[in-house]
Amino acid sequence: MTVFNDAVPAVANLGPHLLAALRRAATDAAGDGIEFYVNSGWRSAAYQERLFRRAVSEYGSEAAAARWVATADTSLHVAGEAADIGHSDATSWLSDHGARYGLCQIYRNEPWHYELRTDAVHRGCPRMYADPTHDPRMRR
């Protein structure tokens, strides 16, 4: 689904500032022949919990799963403050231009995961965490 698809809750329920930044960036990227897709945006707490439980089964422990999937209590997707962007040409474009819109990759192990950092417009994106287990926001 594109960032302009308001009929899909994963897009429509994103935070308004994040969604506006994604749409500004997508409009500009289209001029370079790049189309943004939201592979995963807003998620319900129940869905996030299912994703986490599935990751625990796959990786063998909650600690290992936490490198890839947040709990429903800590997920920025549940809060509508994170979007996983696809395809690789879009994430590459965002790596080069995202700070201009306040859109930053947060985790080195997740090149598709973007969040809004409004101060990045003037200061650039902050250093990335290796993975979510290094992010203090994930420790609740």
Rank of each mutant, 00 (worst) to 15 (best):
T91W: 08
R127M: 14
Y129H: 15
V78L: 06
T91Q: 13
I85S: 02
S61I: 11
A79D: 14
P111V: 05
L94N: 05
D73N: 14
W93R: 12
A65D: 09
P136V: 00
W93I: 11
R127I: 09
D84R: 11
P136W: 03
M138D: 14
A120S: 08
A65W: 10
E115S: 06
S75H: 07
T71V: 11
V69F: 03
T71I: 07
Y107N: 14
D89M: 06
G102N: 06
R100Y: 15
Q105L: 13
M138I: 08
H113P: 00
S92L: 12
M138L: 08
H87F: 12
A79Q: 15
H113Q: 04
A72M: 11
H134L: 15
E110D: 14
H87R: 06
R127T: 14
A63V: 05
A130R: 11
R123E: 00
A120D: 04
Y107G: 08
A90N: 13
D73V: 12
I106P: 00
R123Q: 07
Y114V: 00
S61V: 10
C125L: 02
L103W: 12
T74D: 07
A83L: 06
D84Y: 08
G124F: 06
A82K: 04
D135T: 04
S92P: 02
P136E: 02
A120C: 03
P126M: 11
A130M: 06
P136D: 01
H87G: 15
A82G: 07
L116N: 01
D84I: 05
G80M: 10
R67D: 05
L94Q: 05
R137Y: 02
S95M: 09
S88L: 06
G102D: 08
H134S: 15
A72Y: 07
V69M: 09
G86Q: 07
A99M: 03
S61Y: 07
L116Y: 01
L116S: 00
A64I: 05
R117E: 03
A72C: 12
R108M: 10
H77I: 13
L103Y: 10
H77S: 03
C125G: 01
V69G: 02
H134Y: 14
L94G: 04
D135S: 03
I106G: 01
G80P: 01
G98C: 05
V78T: 07
D84S: 13
R117W: 04
H97W: 13
H87S: 07
P132A: 10
S61P: 08
A120N: 01
S61C: 10
H97C: 05
G80E: 13
A120F: 02
A65V: 12
Q105M: 10
T118Y: 04
A90S: 13
D89N: 14
H122R: 14
R127F: 09
Y114E: 00
E115Y: 01
